[in-house]
Design a protein around this nucleic acid. Sequence first.
RNA 1: GCAGUCGGACGGUUUGUCGCUGGCACACUUUUAUGGGGGUGCGAGAGGAAAGUCCGGGCAGCGCAGGGCAUCCCACUUCCUAAUAUAGAAGGAGUCCGCAAGGGUUGAGUAAUGCAGAAGAAAACAACCGCAUGAAUAAGUUGCAAACCUCGGUUUGCUUCUUUUUGUGUAAGGGUGAGAAGGUGAGGUAAGAGCUCACCAGCGAUGUGGCGACACUAUCGGCUGUGCAUCUUGGGAGCUGCAAGUUCAUGUAAACUACCGCCAUCAGGGUAGCCCGCCCGACAGUUCGGUAGAGGGUAGAACGCUUAAGCCAUGAGGUGACUCAUUGGAUUGGAUAAAUGACAGACCAUUCUUCGGAAUGACAGAACCCGGCUUAUAGUUCGACUGCUUUC
RNA 2: GGUGCCUUGGAUGAGUGGCUUAGUCACCGGUCUGCAAAACCGCUUACACCCGUUCGAAUCGGGUAGGCACCU
Length: 131
Amino acid sequence: MRNTFCKSERLNSKLIIDKLFAGGNSSFTVFPLRVVYMKTEKTVSGNGQTIPASILISVPKKRFHHAVDRNRVKRLVRESYRLNKSILWEALEDKDYGVTLAFVCMTDTLPDFKHLEKCVVKILRRVAEKC
RNA sequence: GCAGUCGGACGGUUUGUCGCUGGCACACUUUUAUGGGGGUGCGAGAGGAAAGUCCGGGCAGCGCAGGGCAUCCCACUUCCUAAUAUAGAAGGAGUCCGCAAGGGUUGAGUAAUGCAGAAGAAAACAACCGCAUGAAUAAGUUGCAAACCUCGGUUUGCUUCUUUUUGUGUAAGGGUGAGAAGGUGAGGUAAGAGCUCACCAGCGAUGUGGCGACACUAUCGGCUGUGCAUCUUGGGAGCUGCAAGUUCAUGUAAACUACCGCCAUCAGGGUAGCCCGCCCGACAGUUCGGUAGAGGGUAGAACGCUUAAGCCAUGAGGUGACUCAUUGGAUUGGAUAAAUGACAGACCAUUCUUCGGAAUGACAGAACCCGGCUUAUAGUUCGACUGCUUUC
RNA sequence: GGUGCCUUGGAUGAGUGGCUUAGUCACCGGUCUGCAAAACCGCUUACACCCGUUCGAAUCGGGUAGGCACCU
């Protein structure tokens, strides 16, 4: 399995985002990230591949004032998801629904990659268990 | 050598693996078709400030017969740029700071009107103290004369000075203030005063130089307080901003347009603050009911969207900003819950070092596009210049 | 991306060029009380920062920093 991250894996629909944050969805925190997730239908990308999970990364302006730092955190989270998404995908392979995830950054200081990757792996395992 | 001023350039390099965005080529798939989709290969992918949004322009939509007033903005000069006297740059001018190289800053006009805390007699009208002089009467006083007597004084008249009251003159003085009728000296006067004169500072006129701001010296004019506001003069300004706006698919609202009907009321209504003017006029507007039309907003997709008032070199013109060229050359960021990344290694800088090595990599991330300004910025580097010191 | 606004004692908040600033609440200290509450009295370096205009700036102008709202 290739560790890609194409456009249809990103969450960009305003309606789904509103639904995700409206309440009633499960969430938990593995410092420095908070995760909100929701069951949805699986989407099919242009080449016929089914995409079981789509994600969103949010870094609040209050915690990181400069755009450089916000971009850096988003890229780190995205990269660690890309390298480890197989955990979630294999768990959802034989299910008939998909999952939508939102990562929210909770820390004030810039995290380093190895730390964040461990954190993301932990989160993905927990989501895979619960679904 | 030390201290300093101004201006410019760069702002980590590179290899591998795994990804993202868009470009080109190739074949594939899907669709009636334009087209859409992923795959493989090739080469590309943040800045000097991308930032602040302090200015200006392009571009886009809406509005708009015309004129005046009001409102707001601008204000040393010449010149440059798309930017009209506005944002800025260059050459100058005035003024302030610095020994200097240099740096900061800006004056439209003052005819009229108003205001100026505290302090001060007074903030420019006057009044007051003071000075000078006239008068008055009262008191004191100097001198002279006359009369009287106890011969030393008393009384009366004139007179000198002082005090008091009052009229007139008074831009000296009143030492407070940011500012006190330009300053110093002499003459002059009852006392004083540009009242007169000499020198000095400023202003106005004439002259000379300069495109001009302005400068200069000479002559003439006694013309001379500071700040703010009103005011006056000249010039400029329609509003909103790519979340502008255009197109597609979906669908029709209590909003819009046209027509019809009914009821009541006003004489006017529109022209984006007011007036003139212009337009409409018993139409329009308001309330209710009906019919028809056209279609807003939200969510989605596409366009706008990147080759340009652009950049580099050469030549010519100009002190310079900059401009010109039948000149030559290179142009590949275009995202949209938002790409330009992550990891590992080598090198390069800086710091620490037990000399093995270790740590760190400034400020900061395009959001329609340009030009300027401002602010942040580790480190490296180039050029021009100034002052002081030393040596030759 | 664009547009508009705000910043004054610890908190709130008045002050449109003239005595480093009105009031309210809170804190602390004092008076009062056997002790407290209430009441009364007192108290708090720089008006966010820098520069300019002015004789004089919280106030006027320019810049910087921080914060808020709207286009939603």
